[in-house]
Design a protein around this nucleic acid. Structure first.
Length: 333
DNA sequence: CACCAATA
DNA sequence: TATTGGTGG
């Protein structure tokens, strides 16, 4: 769910600085890892790898972004996906095919010597595998950052924790956590604030979307927001042909959701998807504890096994440790 | 994406 | 101090 929802949310977002964001952030791990794997690459598309060919792009991303979060008073908890609902299977299969095609296109672009195309296709070929997940969890553990295993969708679990006040906001580039009921979503929480798009660099500021103001602004309930999502398409359904954000908003406001589905997509039963967004599987069986980083453990992992530069790793960790120490002192005095 | 050294 | 371009693994 992306472009279609984005234009109706255009004036529901507030731009802010990192200072406005101190608190506990429930990070959609899948979303963050995917971004790291897609983007942290060489100009020809090759990801960062250690000497044995293990991909390390995600580890670089986690290390440096986490250091920045902590330095700026943001305590992250990473939320990993569990078992997807059955009705996500079609989307999962489609994405696998898209990645496979991109992988071929990447190799083709390399043969042609078109580096820009190679990078683009390589990004689209990125995939999260068991090594990505396991190494990410290991690094987070060594950094003293908690992570949670969601029973189903990570965004649903993050939203649940935000609703219960266990975290301050959810962090993701996707809007799904709003449909899952997260009171606050923060996007573009990147350090550099710059993104290269088609050769140009543009500035991107962190943006916050507050669910209650969004619903007020649009004049809909959360149930109706879910209906809008289903009309324009989600991870769980392709959406109704020819209906974008604005039309969906109109349809839902008029109470015509059911009739439009019945007319335009009679085979489709939106019930299970709506129920899933409104009441997804979540858990309260988790602990949120932030500890001091295991500096030697991180060095052994990243420098010993993944060929990171000792200097860069220690400098990142020193920023974390110093700040963490200062915080405990500040709290004490 | 984020770091870092070079640059102005 | 702020921006850039090359590089990280």
């Amino acid at each position: 769910m992306g472009v279609a929802i984005r234009d109706i949310l255009a004036d529901c977002k507030e731009t802010l600085t990192w200072d406005d964001l101190s608190g506990i952030a429930a990070v959609d791990a899948h979303n963050a890892l995917y971004q790291f794997l897609s983007i942290i690459r060489q100009p020809d598309g090759t990801p960062l790898m250690n000497g044995t060919g293990r991909i390390t792009s995600h580890l670089s991303g986690i290390l440096f972004r986490t250091a920045n979060f902590l330095e700026r008073g943001i305590k992250p908890v990473f939320v990993f996906d569990g078992k997807p609902p059955e009705f996500k299977q079609e989307t999962i299969n489609e994405r696998r095919e898209v990645r496979a095609r991109a992988d071929d296109a990447w190799k083709a672009a390399l043969r042609e010597g078109d580096m820009e195309e190679a990078y683009k296709q390589a990004s689209a070929s990125a995939r999260i595998d068991s090594h990505t997940i396991e190494s990410s969890r290991e690094l987070l553990g060594l950094l003293g950052i908690p992570w949670i295993q969601a029973p189903s969708e990570g965004e649903a679990q993050a939203a649940h924790m935000a609703r219960r006040g266990m975290v301050t906001y959810a962090v993701s580039q996707d809007y799904d956590s709003l449909l899952f009921g997260s009171p606050v979503l923060v996007r573009n929480l990147t350090v550099s604030g710059r993104r290269k798009t088609r050769g140009r660099t543009i500035t991107v500021n962190p943006e916050r979307i507050v669910l209650s103001s969004l619903l007020d602004r649009l004049g809909v309930t959360r149930e109706q927001l879910v209906e809008i999502g289903i009309l324009v398409g989600t991870d769980f359904n392709p959406g109704v042909r020819g209906i974008g954000g604005k039309t969906a908003l109109k349809v839902v406001r008029n109470g015509d959701f059911e009739s439009v589905i019945a007319e335009k997509s009679p085979e489709f039963d939106p019930g299970p998807i709506r129920d899933f967004f409104l009441d997804p599987p979540v858990t309260d069986d988790y602990a949120l504890e932030w500890g001091a980083p295991d500096v030697e453990g991180v060095a052994e992992m990243l420098c010993g096994r993944y060929d990171f530069s000792e200097e860069r790793v220690r400098s990142a960790l020193s920023r974390v440790s110093v700040k963490a120490a200062q915080k405990t002192l500040d709290a004490w005095f």
